[in-house]
């Protein structure tokens, strides 16, 4: 069974009296362990798709299943729980908590799960080492470069061992060198831990790293290529 199944997913937004269709019928299956990019011009519906998959939003029509469970049928609290346990988020603008150190930002992810056992520290330190931030644990986001911040964000998403990491334009705010390093880190994590990654991008360099490239145009899957 696929990790993620989308069937005939439509999403309309209301803008005043107008109904603006963002997604017009998406069918997609994502297997566990995939490293998948969603490409497409801005306004094509990439972010909307990620929001739906990330349980932040519900489709106007169609079905989304995570591990065979239909998300639309779950109550809000349970959706929050799924986000908390099974999904990691990485944002374009990192969105770290400015008052917490790198270590604490990562730890926060576990704290939300109510984990406070002695191995929390090991886990946080290990994942920070994995993303190449050893020695920078006690820095606050303001004292880190953009690339370093995004590494913290990736560590934060991964520390809880999620089934799925959703990254919305993770490299868009970074220079190409750093962007490349970040996408390589994501790929490394995908291979090492088997975590499924779905990320949106319009950067061809970043797309090149993807094992599967889904192109969205006008709210429809225009192309679905595997390599």
């Amino acid at each position: 069974m696929a990790l993620l199944e989308l069937e005939g997913v439509r999403k309309d937004y209301r803008q005043g009296r107008l109904t603006v269709p963002a997604l017009r019928g998406i069918d997609l299956e994502v297997e566990s362990g995939e490293f998948m990019a969603i490409a497409g011009p801005s306004g094509s519906g990439k972010t909307t798709l990620l929001n739906l998959v990330g349980c932040l939003d519900t489709p106007t029509e169609g079905v989304i299943r995570l591990d065979g469970i239909e998300l639309a049928k779950l109550p809000k609290a349970q959706l929050a729980d799924i986000r908390r346990r099974r999904i990691g988020f990485v944002f374009q603008s990192y969105n770290l908590i400015p008052v917490l150190t790198a270590y604490e930002n990562v730890e926060f992810s576990l704290a939300l799960l109510g984990e406070n056992s002695s191995n929390v520290k090991d886990r946080v330190m290990r994942i920070l080492a994995d993303v190449g931030l050893s020695g920078l644990e006690n820095r606050r986001p303001g004292d880190l470069s953009g690339g370093q911040q995004q590494r913290v964000a990736i560590a934060r998403a991964l520390v809880k061992g999620p089934d799925l990491v959703l990254a919305d334009e993770p490299t868009a705010n970074l220079d190409s060198e750093t962007g490349k390093a970040i996408i390589e880190l994501m790929l490394e994590m995908n291979q090492k831990k088997g975590t499924t990654f779905i990320f949106s991008t319009h950067d061809p360099m970043v797309m090149n790293y993807a094992r599967r490239l889904v192109t969205v145009r006008d709210g429809r899957v225009a192309e679905d290529k595997r390599r």
Binding site: A80, D81, R84, F89, N95, I97, P98
Partner: peptide, 13 residues
């Protein structure tokens, strides 16, 4: 605002 959005996305109730 974005911090709050992020927290919600991360599953904070």
């Amino acid at each position: 605002v974005r911090e709050i959005g992020m927290m919600k996305a991360m599953g904070m109730t």
